[in-house]
Design a binder for these strands. Structure first.
Lengths: 191, 191
DNA sequence: TTTTCACTGGGACAAATGTCCTTGATTACA
DNA sequence: TGTAATCAAGGACATTTGTCCCAGTGAAAA
């Protein structure tokens, strides 16, 4: 999250500029709150974020939403489903204005089949996701909410950007009521 | 977890049989409760499990343990750290007798650099881990304990193998007291 | 056989979290 | 300007979960 992966971005920007039109890479943009990918739908493109921020979330059968991560510049979405040839595992929505390179499924697969350095980039981005997701899961089960909350608040400040309370609570996997309580307790007791 | 990845296993078994000795792949075995990888230590080898089951867990600073997943036949460990050139992110311990191929770091890196099909296998195994870890995190935050507990109990039965209560509670991220309560409630009300 | 020890399960209480609902503030609209 | 509608914050209570501890069981040692 909020890791700027220049390497990835450079790789695709080069392809965008030099590849011929038939390749089909486009630069597209989304306003705030637009859906880039919808859970259980068929994936036709990979997106690489050029600017802006998205949330990646599960819509659970009990109606609740769980935000896995936030994606920003240089991060990719849709690749996992295309690699596994599956429908979308989760939904992705812009939370501020987003610009992204849209890469058609077939071209992405073709690149993946012949290009070792793209494979390496995917491996590294997957590795980072595994670590983030694992640590988040552990922290959210074994530490107090305040612990994870402090971390994400610091990150917000550092990146000068604000996550809504409803997104914050979905990220932490708690109710807004509990989030309010924790925010209050952090304010009163800023350890 | 308990996914038998024959493809991976076949790949390494071929290398084990045909590569010359200098490659350094060895078949090693561990009794129950032996440590294969220790958090924060340097990783010198990748292991590919031939038989048996391991637990992969974080040892948190507050003394608690969180089990991320259980690994069995055809699953790999240590590769993520070697790829990222980092110390162990988590610890891995056998919970029953384990046989595994031990692959030296340098040989693994060499393969990774030239072999597209190994890259593909790593990508697929990472993808699966991302999905498992993400779903587990979401379920553990948004559903009752009984939900995850039922799932893992079914899996235990299907694979004819028993996880200790202390490992079960570390996998679910709850105390043994809560686990006992949930087990009792499942027995009284087997929905 | 008796005693001690270690371990497991569960009771009792405390703390954390969720649900429901009221209140107050802000916005939209007549 | 006044009224209705909407939304966020927090009170009150219920439920869940954790912590602490005790009793019962079984195993090991005297």
């Amino acid at each position: 999250m909020f890791r700027i992966n220049q390497e990835f971005l450079k790789f695709i920007e080069d392809h965008f500029q030099h590849a011929n039109d038939s390749v089909g890479i486009e630069l597209v943009s989304f306003e705030s709150n637009e859906i880039l990918m919808e859970q259980d739908q068929i994936v036709r493109n990979v997106y690489l974020i050029k600017s802006g921020i998205c949330k990646v979330y599960f819509e659970e059968e009990n109606g609740k939403e769980y935000i896995l991560e936030f994606l920003s510049t240089g991060e990719i979405l849709g690749e996992l489903e295309i690699i596994r040839d599956e429908t979308c595992l989760c939904s992705v929505k812009s939370i501020i204005k987003v610009e992204a390179f849209k890469i058609p499924k077939n071209y992405f697969l073709k690149l993946l089949n012949g290009n070792l350095s793209l494979n390496k980039m995917i491996i590294h981005s997957f590795a980072e996701r595994i670590i983030n997701t694992s640590k988040k899961a552990s922290h959210q089960k074994l530490y107090s909410i305040e612990y994870s909350l402090t971390k994400i608040m610091e990150m917000q400040k550092k990146n000068d950007f604000e996550i809504s309370k409803s997104d914050l609570s979905a990220y932490l996997g708690i109710s807004i009521r509990s989030l309010n309580r924790s925010l209050k307790s952090l304010k009163e007791n800023p350890s």
